[in-house]
Design a protein around this nucleic acid. Structure first.
Lengths: 233, 233
DNA sequence: AAATTCAATATGTAGCTACATAATAATGTC
DNA sequence: GACATTATTATGTAGCTACATATTGAATTT
């Protein structure tokens, strides 16, 4: 867009955002209709619409058909995070990637895993424990459960050389994702695999995916001490 | 849109996504031009454009003017997180919110804080340590630095009753945000304030904001043991 | 008065045109 | 051949029209 021509949708968005932070439109208030704002700012309704969509995505406003647009009463900081494939993450840091399969079995899901998927009863799933290495040092320890009903082909994959992480991300689309982060003290077995002192604090990434209503996989990825996650710019 | 009429942009997006996961368009491949895809799928270029924008935002493809669209070679899991104002977070869990100011001073920024902002030299900033309580139990301990050049009015705010967290979020817009999560062992002073055994693992949220190139504030928020962050659906 | 129906309304979506912009490819000049 | 200039091309943006859809609120019926 040209600077001195009409307003671009980003400019409109910034103007509205400024007004919200100005208290011109206070938290909980109803904003003017798109069309009125468009007329006031001298642009088309589509432009205001685009701006509003962005603000809505950013969590600043809430829109409802007919109901109009209102400023969210409790502002939140919304940020995006990228969780790359572990191999790529290691390689992008300029380190050598390594992978070790620790365990591969078929087991009945314990209650904790059923809870993650929201399953009412226990079923048999494939369980894979593996260690990702960076320059031959432990990097991430993963404990994964895979639903063999929705992914029977995983049984054919050679998991001694290829990580289930990578195979699933590349071959299994998901429609729903739950990601959560928390801290824990590395206990006996985990501390041993990560080669770290007992009770050292580690960041855990828990990732569960479904396709439709069917579970695909859930992983608990325990990162090495000092690991840090940062938002995408 | 009507089901049996033309394709909606979400349908187009899903179709393209399916093809990417199908390996019809493999990682690194160049996708057809928007216009060609539009013709093939029987919709307008704008519709394909919208779909592509979404896929680009989701991190699945990369677009460049003239260069066209290509499938990102290393797929990532992208998720969004909301960091609410602490008071709201506590209240939404149905607990009573409490707040205690621990320290309020003006100090020269140590190297660690300069690094967070990318400052070349040390400057004087306001430092605020405070404890957020949930049902009278420690919930989050924050150690905050505020640039008094860009926020002189913070000096007038009574921080014994109102948290700087809330005041800043409500009154200070930011143009750039850096969020990072990591785990640490609660040390002496932190463990004491959080009323938790020494060395227990805690999740730390570090949040730094700028307006333009100017620093606004940076916080290290140490959460209580067991705290968990989860992605928005 | 309660329930149902229906009209009004604000946002959501699709398609079209026109032009802007950035990156590449082709061309011309020295 | 190296460099600068220009044309080409694919995506990005803005505006318009038309219609879809959800929700509110008024009108109507029971």
């Amino acid at each position: 867009m040209t600077i001195d021509s009409r307003l671009s949708w980003t400019q409109v968005r910034d103007e509205i955002r400024a007004r919200i932070l100005n208290r011109t439109y206070a938290p909980g208030d109803k904003l003017p209709r798109d069309e009125d704002l468009a007329q006031e700012l001298g642009c088309a309704r589509t432009t205001v619409h685009r701006a509003m969509q962005d603000l809505s995505l950013a969590g600043l406003v809430e829109r409802k058909r007919k109901g109009g647009t209102r400023v969210k009463s409790d502002p939140v900081t919304r940020a995006t995070f990228d969780i790359p494939i572990t191999r790529r993450e290691v390689e992008q840091r300029g380190s050598k990637y390594g992978y070790q399969l620790i365990q591969r079995s078929v087991e009945l899901t314990p209650p904790a895993i059923m809870a993650r998927f929201g399953l009412p009863t226990a079923i048999k799933m494939m369980r894979v424990k593996a260690l990702h290495l960076s320059d031959n040092r432990p990097f991430i320890l993963e404990d994964r459960w895979i639903d063999i009903r929705s992914n029977p082909d995983i049984l054919e994959v050679d998991l001694t050389t290829q990580s289930a992480n990578e195979w699933l991300v590349l071959h299994k689309p998901y429609s729903r994702l739950d990601l959560r982060f928390y801290a824990m003290n590395a206990t006996g077995e985990i501390a041993k695999h990560l080669d770290t002192p007992d009770t050292s604090a580690v960041l855990v990434i828990e990732r569960t995916t479904w396709i439709g209503a069917d579970p695909i996989t859930t992983v608990q990825a325990v990162t090495m001490p000092g690991y840090q996650l940062s938002s995408v710019s």
